[in-house]
């Protein structure tokens, strides 16, 4: 196992707090940077994220060239609030409308590659309650300062909001510790050094993102790490400590569904890499149980494990960005 990576490629966001320097570097390298926020009913947090990031990283320091919201069809005021505070807002279904539409975070991130213009793309979850611009400059910093780094992943303390107006100081990361870390330990020990592989905040060069497939749903973070590791190696990946992040707590059942999707993605990748073989195909349905009027009934959710191909395979994308097929 390459233990040096943890030392060399782990940063703290405070190392990149000199925003003037980052803007100068960006300009010197002739790069543009896009921020994408995938949303689904995020009216409580989207306004705050946009106001702060626009103020600090567009108005005061022009680090970001655009902020784009890609929405999965929110039924609350997410889109109108986002428009009020100056984001370019798209419904995911309206992007590349000739393709069969899917619902999921991965779908939004993949489609964002088509509508954003930046050389660097920053993906940020839209449910961060304690948003601070360090969440963005912390991810961009290593990409601008270290030429060999192509993809940066966030990690942080994870206090979680419990109930109204109460915060529990520690917790979260259950799927990471119970699912991902054991799997990485078994198959890819190098990757265990990534402290929070499921964090929803990451940034990277378009050249990287356009060449990897995107699972539609929860598997996107896992597949991204596996694909980048497989294609370019561990050294192009970095991780950055963004300190505290407060987010919504999810119940165990919801995490079970997330774990199911992640396991499917993981196994499909390891099969493709020839690491394991299954004699029978994997099922698509997560089976949980619920109590209905004193009767235990199955609660079924089908997760097919759909993926979008590397977007560079799309002719309209190649034309838009003047790319050649890989």
């Amino acid at each position: 196992m390459n233990r040096d990576w943890l030392k060399k490629n782990t940063f703290h966001c405070s190392a990149f707090g000199d925003l003037k320097r980052l803007v100068e570097l960006k300009s010197k390298k002739g790069l543009t940077i896009s921020l994408c926020l995938p949303t689904l009913n995020e009216e409580k947090t989207i306004g705050k994220e946009l106001v702060i990031l626009k103020s600090e990283l567009m108005t005061r320091y022009p680090l970001l060239d655009e902020i784009v919201v890609v929405d999965s069809g929110s039924t609350d005021d997410t889109r109108s609030i986002a428009r009020t505070f100056g984001a370019d807002v798209y419904k995911a279904d309206d992007i590349l409308p000739h393709l069969e539409p899917y619902k999921g975070k991965g779908e939004n991130l993949w489609k964002a590659l088509y509508i954003t213009k930046g050389d660097i793309i920053v993906y940020l979850d839209a449910d961060i309650k304690n948003i601070h611009h360090r969440f963005v400059y912390g991810l961009i910093g290593p990409l601008l300062l270290h030429d060999h780094i192509k993809y940066v992943k966030a990690f942080y303390d994870r206090p979680i909001a419990i109930g109204k107006n109460k915060i529990r100081p520690t917790g979260g990361g259950r799927v990471t510790e119970l699912v991902i870390r054991p799997l990485f330990s078994l198959f890819f020990p190098d990757l265990t050094q990534i402290l929070q592989p499921l964090s929803g905040e990451y940034a990277g060069f378009r050249d990287v993102f356009e060449r990897i497939p995107f699972p539609i749903g929860y598997g996107i973070e896992t597949s991204m790490i596996l694909d980048i590791y497989h294609k370019w190696g561990l050294d192009v990946i970095a991780q950055v400590d963004l300190e505290k992040r407060i987010h919504r707590n999810q119940d165990t059942k919801a995490l079970g569904k997330m774990a199911f999707a992640i396991l499917k993605t993981f196994f499909s990748r390891t099969v493709n890499l020839g690491l394991i073989n299954f004699n029978t195909p994997l099922h698509d349905t997560m089976i949980q149980y619920k109590l209905v009027k004193s009767e235990i009934q199955p609660d079924l959710l089908t997760i097919e494990g759909l993926e979008r191909p590397p977007i560079i395979e799309l002719p309209e994308y190649r034309q838009r960005f003047n790319r050649k097929a890989s």
Binding site: E43, T45, G47, K48, D77, I81, F85, A161, N165, I167
Partner: peptide, 17 residues
């Protein structure tokens, strides 16, 4: 300190402790 001080911003107003 035990009270959640995280604000919400909507089109016309800010909400929070």
């Amino acid at each position: 300190y035990d009270v959640d001080h995280n604000f919400t911003i909507r089109e016309n107003a800010i909400y929070g402790a």
